[in-house]
Design a binder for these strands. Structure first.
Length: 297
DNA sequence: GTACAGGCAGTAT
DNA sequence: ATACTGCCTGTA
């Protein structure tokens, strides 16, 4: 580790870039409009980020919430400590320097659950389309800067929603999974405060009870909305990254598709290796894989 | 036409 | 326990 690494970290921390973060594949409902402003949907709020200069951003929200960006981009976390914790090798050190503005985001739990249930066996443009349709059909219209947006529907909204109307959002066979998740939340079976206070293992066990939530989706929900920064969601991109750069982390060979056992082994090895902020390392590796693969979303 | 996309659950071995 | 298969839908 270079001697000036800690001083380096301080400068990395100050280069926080919300635009990179919202475009790193963890959130789906953000759009760019005229004059370089980005608008996003988070629960009942429409959020806005305007780039006012190099590394200078203005954050606003409708209705007003002056602190939303602190919460959403986890600016209450100590990025310096986190970067230090996950920098276990030259690869992570390199990509933290490469994308110093990238942050893990804190999402509304219900929106996060519906988003990642929609994400099963499809691609990001399709996920965006499904969620966009859901907001238009079941959300509430909000005018911001002369543009029309729709809030994200509540679990109750989805729980009460008509099956055919849900189907018309392009969800396909995911309708059943969306419905079961909505009912679990609306009925109180899933209690976000309880899940946040619980350990990673306990909270994951609860999520896995829900029809339509498996290993990967559960880990995304835990990491992005339930404060489990040690969760390490394992998808084909991350598996590839681990296979190429951390072959010593796993014993057995595996192909493109992971078996249940392989998922557990890989994810848990990565969690042990990267430590309590493993999920942050995952986001960096994921973003780097997508960047180098030239994916546009 | 056919393969494929950031999984999951149900069924068969 | 582990492997195999179908699944909505849109795009290449």
């Amino acid at each position: 580790m270079p001697r000036n690494w800690l001083a380096d970290l301080q400068s990395l921390y100050s280069s926080f870039d919300p635009i990179t973060s919202i475009n790193s594949g963890q959130v789906f409902l953000w759009e760019k409009h005229r004059d370089s402003s980005w608008y996003g949907v988070s629960g009942d709020h429409i959020l806005k980020i305007k780039q006012a200069g190099c590394e200078l951003f203005e954050f606003s929200s409708f209705p007003e919430d002056k602190a939303w960006h602190r919460r959403m981009f986890r600016l209450d976390d100590d990025a310096r400590t986190i970067f230090g914790e996950i920098s276990r090798d030259s690869l992570v050190r390199r990509i933290v320097r490469l994308y110093p503005g990238l942050r893990l985001m804190r999402q509304e739990p219900h929106q996060c659950i519906f988003s990642f249930v929609c994400a099963s066996n499809t691609n990001i443009p399709m996920i965006r389309r499904m969620l966009h349709n859901l907001t238009r059909k079941f959300g509430r219209p909000v005018k911001v800067d002369g543009l029309e947006f729709f809030t994200f529907p509540s679990a109750n909204d989805i729980d009460r929603a008509d099956i055919d109307e849900l189907r018309s959002c392009g969800l396909g066979y995911r309708v059943r999974a969306i419905k079961s998740a909505a009912h679990a939340i609306a009925s109180g079976q899933l209690d976000f405060d309880v899940l946040k206070a619980a350990s990673y293992e306990e909270a994951k066990k609860e999520l896995l009870q829900i029809y339509g939530i498996g290993n990967k989706i559960a880990d995304c929900i835990l990491l992005f909305s339930l404060e489990k920064l040690d969760a390490f969601p394992m998808d084909v991109w991350i598996a590839r990254a681990l296979l190429e750069n951390y072959s010593w982390l796993h014993q057995e060979e595996f192909g493109d598709k992971l078996t249940l056992h392989q998922y557990e082994e890989l994810s848990n090895s990565a969690r042990r290796y990267f430590g309590k902020y493993a999920g942050y390392a995952q986001q960096y590796l994921y973003y780097h894989m997508r960047q180098t693969a030239g994916k546009k979303w």
